[in-house]
């Protein structure tokens, strides 16, 4: 049961049932702006309700990848997973901006066989989809979900090499560099969905420290026709930024009753639906 929770947390809130979707997945770096010839960041990774507190589940770390400023792959070190959070370190040895990301693409869905609805097993991908559906299955419905949870940290001056889009899922392209944010200033980001500007994408930003205030302080934004939006940071601190499309909690169509796929109105079998989610944690410094 514990292992199952951990896995669900890693794959993302989208895979959980309605009740669990209230949880937020995040990575929180010890610092995003660093000086020196080399440095370390330590990152907490968890799934929780309040930001940024460890109170629900750890995030799994085995899918976390580090991209160094020159584009080469780095590594996480000293990784450990506890009851409520995971933690790991990244050694910054090159000047410039690093990406630390957990990216997953999976296929969810269901089919009818012998009059019974079955769900596709976790871990189903494009490659093994055919083998996951038994002969004689009817009313096959699939949804491809791309989830990206990433953070950026910079040693020295910010660089842009790592922002080359992959073309899969929701991606952030800086107009303002995400490690160059100051309260009171406006920052502009562009969002892509499968490599193209994501127009009309709903994006939310929530400042950390929720536990010690009454109101969420959530900022609801929507991208323009070029997939761009501008945020003026009301105060310094860590912000959780989330975007999703094609279902899911924020910014998508409703997913139906909690945990009850069978009660959802049947839709005809057809081309896969597209779901994607994006999470990042942004540090906004005081002027």
């Amino acid at each position: 049961m514990k292992a199952r929770h951990v896995i669900a947390g890693a794959v993302g809130a989208l895979l959980l049932s309605g009740a669990a979707q209230a949880h937020r997945q995040w990575m929180l770096p010890s610092s995003t702006t660093l000086s020196g010839n080399e440095s370390w960041v330590t990152v907490d990774a968890a799934v929780s309700n309040d930001l940024f507190y460890f109170e629900h589940n750890p995030m799994r770390t085995d899918n976390i990848r580090v991209t160094q400023p020159d584009g080469s792959e780095g590594k996480i070190e000293n990784s450990a997973t506890g009851k409520y959070r995971s933690t790991f370190d990244v050694h910054l040895t090159q000047p410039g901006t690093y990406r630390i990301a957990s990216v997953s693409t999976g296929i969810m869905g269901s089919y009818m066989v012998n009059g019974e609805q079955k769900r596709l097993p976790r871990g189903t991908t494009k490659d093994n989809l055919a083998g996951a559906i038994p002969a004689g299955a009817t009313n096959v419905q699939t949804t491809e979900a791309s989830n990206r949870n990433e953070i950026f940290v910079t040693l020295g001056a910010p660089t842009a090499t790592i922002f080359k889009p992959t073309g899969a899922g929701i991606e952030l392209v800086p107009v303002t560099h995400p490690n160059d944010l100051v309260s009171g200033e406006a920052a502009t980001f562009q969002f892509l969905l499968d490599g193209k500007p994501a127009a009309g994408l709903k994006v939310t930003a929530i400042p950390g420290g929720i536990r010690y205030r009454d109101s969420l302080g959530q900022m609801d934004l929507i991208t323009d026709k070029d997939g761009k939006l501008t945020i003026t940071w009301p105060q310094p601190g860590m912000y959780w930024l989330n975007a999703s499309t094609g279902g899911g909690r924020e910014g998508g169509e409703a997913m139906g009753a909690p945990g009850s796929t069978a009660q959802k109105p049947q839709r005809p079998a057809g081309p896969p639906q597209r779901r994607a989610s994006y999470v990042t944690t942004l540090e906004v410094l005081a002027p």
């Binding site: 000086s35 020196g36 440095s39 001056a157 160059d180």
Partner: peptide, 18 residues
């Protein structure tokens, strides 16, 4: 000692980091 240069955060942003 360079680890803490970024604490002079306005200078770090406008000049120090380069």
């Amino acid at each position: 000692g360079t680890k803490w240069l970024r604490d002079m955060r306005q200078w770090w942003r406008v000049s120090g980091r380069t």
